[in-house]
Amino acid sequence: MAKYIIKRVLISIPVLIGVVFVIFFMLNVVPGDPVTLMMGEHIKPDLIEAFRERMGLDDPFIVQFFNYLKNALQGDFGMSYKLKREVSDLIFQAFPQTVKLTLSAAMVAWLIGIPSGIIAAVKQNTLIDRGFMTFSLMGVSMPVFWAGLLMQYVFAYKLGWLPVTGYKTWQSFIMPSIVLGWSSAGTIARLTRSNLLEIMKNDFIRTARAKGLRETTVVVGHALKNAMLPVVTMMAIQVSSLLGGAVMTESIFGIPGLGRVAVSAIGDRDMPLLQGTIIFTTMLIIAGNLIADLMYSVLDPRIRCE
């Protein structure tokens, strides 16, 4: 088990370096001089030259990349052009909000998705099943911004139950996490349902019934753990879609998280800041995948024993 964990962690290192490389390449080699872009057209050429040299922008690409990597490994992602602050500081200020938002959205997704999937499977082809599945389809197909505005209108503006925007109280996270988690909840509910129905056809389910177990024990005790295996994989994939959705959600609800930082970095053409947030988000995704993988191996002895 420990060996498996170490192996998985080691595998993610080259993945991370590869991702940094691709991001760095895309943001630095694509046409357009970042300095001109940043400073505007009407700056004296010698000033630009001096700046380029200070930032090491005239070095060959590969040298720039390794310098960046070396600094990044020490937690130094450079300076924000626009805000004139350490990128790492800005990220560390923003990322707790994003983590809070994604984790609570994930909670919403699991706590709603898994039980509704189970209930829909057990009550297959009944009205309850159809109701749950319609609700989850709505979650999957409703765009985040639309659901967000709708909820703001109803619960904040009309009913006044919750704050419209903000991030300082836990109440202000309720709507954002529901909006963000709903679509994942829908996906998880559908996957849980279909897996559970598939698993229930297995011979070992008949064995469990033949032992005299209650149907609830058969479903929750014997089928669910097997059915959760693909769902856990799905959750790993959803870490990235949740983080992606967080960009939109943060903008709608005024949460100063990584998404907001990235969006304003794009607007300001603030290359180091954009680069830093993307790489940091990638790290979060890789970590999420790692956790999901470990959960998988806890659930499935066949992987654990390899």
Binding site: F204, R206, A210, K225, N226, D300
Partner: peptide, 14 residues
């Protein structure tokens, strides 16, 4: 009951 299919009659995760 002893079932016909020994390979699949046991739950793989327990």
């Amino acid at each position: 009951v002893i079932f016909q299919e020994p390979m699949t009659s046991l739950n793989p995760v327990y």
